[in-house]
Design a protein around this nucleic acid. Structure first.
Length: 113
DNA sequence: TTTCTGACTCGAA
DNA sequence: CTTCGAGCCAGAA
């Protein structure tokens, strides 16, 4: 199908949907993978809509591993609970061992899908 | 149509 | 350490 028919949102969903269990990525990483590294904020905006989809939005955090989008989840610690449930350490809204659990779509994902 | 607002990021002051 | 501006795209008013 034509890429032009795919909106930025849809592309974000496809990438986010493929985040492996126990791993996380950043808005910027997804944006960069899509070719628009500077549109990281749009990725975040897209994630908000992804809450109604089969997208593990809780696995997407900002570049520093901070749970900046936790306020968009039901509770104040739901996002953290979900991450910890996957074996990810979260302290003070920040992911621990980020370098270990970080998943870069640009390196682990093929555009050919 | 324009204008504003965001789960962001980087660089500069 | 903090604060600001710019860049990006989509959707609502």
């Amino acid at each position: 199908m034509k890429p032009e028919t795919l909106t930025f949102f849809e592309k974000v969903y496809e990438v986010a949907r493929q985040i492996p269990y126990g791993k996380v990525t950043s808005y910027g990483a997804i944006a960069k993978y899509l070719g628009t590294a500077k549109s990281a904020r749009i990725v975040g905006y897209a994630m908000k809509g992804s809450l109604d989809k089969d997208v593990p939005a809780h696995r997407v955090v900002n570049k520093k591993g901070l749970l900046t989008g936790k306020h968009h989840f039901e509770g104040t610690n739901l996002m953290q609970q979900l991450l910890e449930n996957e074996g990810i350490e979260v302290v003070e809204n920040q992911i621990q061992n980020l370098e270990i659990v970080f998943w870069d779509p640009a390196e682990e994902l093929n555009k050919d899908s």
